[in-house]
Design a protein around this nucleic acid. Structure first.
Lengths: 344, 344
DNA sequence: TTGAAAGCGCTAACAA
DNA sequence: TTGTTAGCGCTTTCAA
């Protein structure tokens, strides 16, 4: 009963990894019983389960997940596609996803588009090739090819961050409303000369949506709506640069509504270095509610977005769907909270 | 020549995904030629390559990477295991890895241990099951089971962050030397009452190594070596807390050497809220060289660690190894740079 | 509860 | 340059 390759037989095994058949043989059962002992322990006798587990321990068996996935066409892999890792916001969403998914035995395949929808399409193609159980992507905007590919895919698709017309599942918040909220706050505070400063709004289009909300409020009040758009991604450095541009082009400005907290804090710290008082000389507001903004003096007025909650909620909805349960609400609004600090 | 299931034949295909055989048939070639046209375009005639690509387009074929990996026992997956995503340092390493690996067609399988070596072991098991082409893990410390598993694995293993006795490949910096460097700087500046403040040093043991370097320098000068260890992970909030503890327990303190920039900036901002002058009343130093530290006033004295470079260098060494080339140096010291700011 | 047979979709080995 | 054959390691289907 030798398992040695019979001469004349093709032999391709390269790795000397222990296989399930070897475990089964050692345990004195058939391969399929060994498989069941590991994956469906309740469908197997105590005796079989025990001898299989003993053999697994003794041989140091590590299941070949690729073979298992091919046979079952289920992979326990979840694709996660984000536009950036530099922006901590997406990292926190990933954190929330990972916590929940890893606990359920799913692994994350991570992709980074660098805000490029064509790269997103390539990543989606690759990930579909891995028979991912589900796909999470940041945002509702995709190129045509990507949309077509996903529309024909029969696994859960979760689009996170903003709310809108989603392909399948959707968890996020209303960025237009967030922009309106902050603009209203600034007006209530008595500011009339308000500039919006964003960075690459066509890429970070959610910041563009917040600007739309901001604009609608200012227009309704009959105010001008100056916009400064920086050509770098958001960072403290860019915020300092944004402040400089505002002071140069709109010297009468009373308040700056920044697209995010990185920019806002960068500007706040720069203002202080230049001896400007915040908010007396210039008021500053951000978006995201990063811890950093709560530690500077004055505290940054911002809008708290529940990033980790987006991740956790998205993950648990996916788990629900993947375990066959119906999902009542395909769309979840996680909301946002205005945090008024001393900076306005 | 129908491809319909012959009655009496077992039929398992569930998904109606286009397969390579269908592409081959449409292109009028054999499956293996279609495979070669896609994976080794130079080993196939122009005519064949062209007709296969046309068929791929027309049918919307997406290669099944799982099947390919099983057959070839190569997966183009690289496992990356980090202790935390909250700490931006690891995210920057991932960023560097991803840039380089994605460009070469590798995907990242991401695992997060939450500073738990048993979780690391579980993740390693899972990732080996995915036949990863290589594994990157943060740190040289693993539990026994993990060590054994990896020692018997015949793929590249890259341990990043600190330098030392690695299993295979190693890219990082000397944290003991970094600790010595900062301690020496503080002494040169004339401080004699210096406290080291860290957070969970047994988990963040690299910060513990920096403390060892710090300690050796202070001891050599005959100075006391007070240590404050916080029981939370590093954050701005924890830094404020650390400052409070130092002021309470060691009121004569002149300088605080924080284990990282998050703590240091948190303390610096807290000090300023309390009206303490930095560095006159209390000097503050950190580690990492986060952008944040360069934007506060005074600028934070810190040690710049090249995180993205660690990721990029690690990735290119792996790529080299994976493409069969020999790697001359299995260990790379990326070094560090003291950035003296106004905070000391 | 257990097992035999077949097949998941692709590629390595060998041959032409 | 192309094709035939077999097999990667596992799980499904079906039958006992």
């Amino acid at each position: 009963m030798s398992k040695e390759p019979i001469s004349g037989t093709k032999q391709r095994r390269r790795s000397d990894q222990v296989t399930l058949s070897q475990v089964a043989e050692a345990a004195g059962v058939s391969p399929i019983t060994a498989s069941r002992a590991l994956n469906h322990p309740d469908k197997v006798s105590d005796r079989a389960r025990h001898s299989v587990h003993t053999a697994v321990e003794r041989l140091g068996y590590v299941p070949n997940l690729i073979a298992g996935s091919l046979a079952s066409s289920r992979s326990r892999l979840v694709a996660v596609i984000v536009p950036s890792l530099v922006n901590t916001v997406f990292v926190e969403v990933i954190q929330g996803l990972q916590e929940t998914l890893e606990a359920q035995g799913y692994q994350i395949l991570l992709g980074n588009t660098d805000y490029d929808l064509d790269r997103e399409y390539q990543l989606v193609r690759t990930f579909l090739g891995w028979s991912c159980s589900a796909l999470v992507t940041a945002g509702l905007r995709h190129n045509q090819a990507c949309h077509t590919l996903l529309a024909n895919w029969d696994h859960p698709i979760m689009e996170v961050m903003e709310l809108g017309k989603a392909m399948d599942l959707n968890v996020g918040l209303d960025h237009v409303a967030a922009g309106r909220c902050m603009a209203s706050h600034l007006i209530e505070k008595g500011y009339r000369h308000i500039v919006y400063v964003g960075a690459r709004l066509s890429q970070d289009y959610r910041a563009g949506m917040r600007f739309e909300g901001h604009k609608s409020v200012l227009k309704a009040k009959g105010l001008a709506v100056p916009l400064v758009e920086l050509n770098t991604l958001g960072s403290l450095q860019a915020g300092a640069e944004g402040l400089a541009q505002v002071l140069a082009h709109y010297p009468q400005t009373q308040a700056i509504h920044f697209a995010n907290d990185d920019l806002a804090v960068g500007a706040l710290l720069a203002a202080q270095r230049q001896g400007l008082r915040v908010p007396e000389d210039i008021a500053i507001a951000g978006f995201n509610g990063l811890p950093l903004g709560q530690h500077v003096t004055p505290q940054l007025t911002t809008i708290l977005s529940p990033r980790e909650e987006i991740g956790r909620l998205a993950a648990s909805i996916l788990i629900q769907r993947l375990s066959g349960k119906a999902v009542e609400h395909r769309q979840h609004d996680v909301g946002f909270t205005l945090q008024a600090g001393g900076s306005t």
